[in-house]
């Protein structure tokens, strides 16, 4: 019943509808767009270096003659997956670890929070530097896992402290007295009541992961040239943003659109889950 009610409320929500339409359009653009354009992302046009957008190269070309339209869309395919997956994994992990630690307390809490603190104090680059040689040759999805592994800790601490107050609520007690297993109580009563926080966290994580991935690429990890992602494109393009704005504007604009659409969906979902809102 709850999922049905929430879905109905979600689709009645204007913001969520616009967000979903925009996200679907962006995904279609990323996956179908390359077939429409005249160039492949690996093609290099040696007659046009750094040329401005025109009828042939719709979004201009880069330093070695890549077609920006094809390259940007190729990057976006990767970035959509990285952004969404990292956000889902990181927020999900934060919610589960925080809620279990807060609800069970005692040694479960101690062990989990000890792990969180350890991850917080260890420099993430150091660990990535140690692990990355072992993962060479593996799929780039490993990279998603690593990126997620270093973004969830602070949220999980917040989730834990919120759970501490939630577990004293009478409806949680009522569920205990009904004989419902504790892990079920966590997923049914604790996590949904933290959903406002988790949704905001997840939407922020999407843009964070896309940008953060570019930073890690410098360390020889993640998406490697010649392959591209929105993050690497923006990092490269921003150096020449004033002289050759199209190198920067298209990837950055698409990132903004992507994050905006996800934010809209997030807001809509939050309203749909929160019975207090009237929208």
């Amino acid at each position: 019943m709850r999922s049905k009610v929430v879905l109905r409320r979600l689709f009645r929500n204007k913001q969520a509808r616009y967000g979903t339409v925009a996200l679907i359009l962006l995904i279609l653009l990323a996956y179908i767009g390359p077939y429409i354009g005249p160039y492949d992302w690996t093609d290099k046009d040696f007659l046009a270096f750094m040329s401005a957008p025109d009828g042939d190269h719709w979004w201009g070309t880069g330093a070695i003659g890549q077609d920006m339209y094809a390259v940007t869309l190729r990057g976006m395919q990767k970035s959509i997956i990285i952004g969404l997956l990292v956000a889902l994994i990181a927020t999900g992990l934060a919610a589960v670890v925080g809620a279990f630690a807060g609800y069970f307390g005692g040694w479960v809490d101690k062990v989990l929070m000890w792990g969180v603190d350890l991850l917080l104090v260890l420099p993430s680059f150091l660990i990535i530097a140690i692990i990355s040689p072992r993962l060479k040759g593996g799929t780039w999805l490993w990279f998603v896992v690593l990126l997620a592994a270093f973004t969830w800790m602070i949220t999980s601490r917040v989730v834990r402290s919120m759970t501490l107050s939630l577990r004293e609520r009478e409806y949680v007690l009522a569920a205990v007295y009904m004989g419902i297993p504790r892990w079920k109580i966590i997923f049914r009563h604790v996590v949904p009541n933290l959903s406002s926080l988790l949704i905001i966290d997840a939407t922020l994580n999407v843009s964070g992961a896309i940008i953060g991935e570019a930073a890690l690429s410098f360390f020889g990890f993640g998406i490697q040239p010649p392959d591209v992602s929105l993050g690497t494109l923006i990092a490269e393009g921003s150096r020449n943003a004033t002289g050759y704005p199209w190198l920067f504007a298209f990837p950055a604009g698409l990132l903004v659109l992507l994050v905006l659409s996800i934010n809209l969906i997030g807001d809509g979902l939050r309203d749909a889950l929160d019975p207090g809102s009237n929208s």
């Binding site: 009610v5 049914r188 009541n193 889950l273």
Partner: peptide, 8 residues
């Protein structure tokens, strides 16, 4: 407080 506010 006795009813989960997020449940129908």
């Amino acid at each position: 407080a006795a009813l989960d506010p997020r449940m129908p």
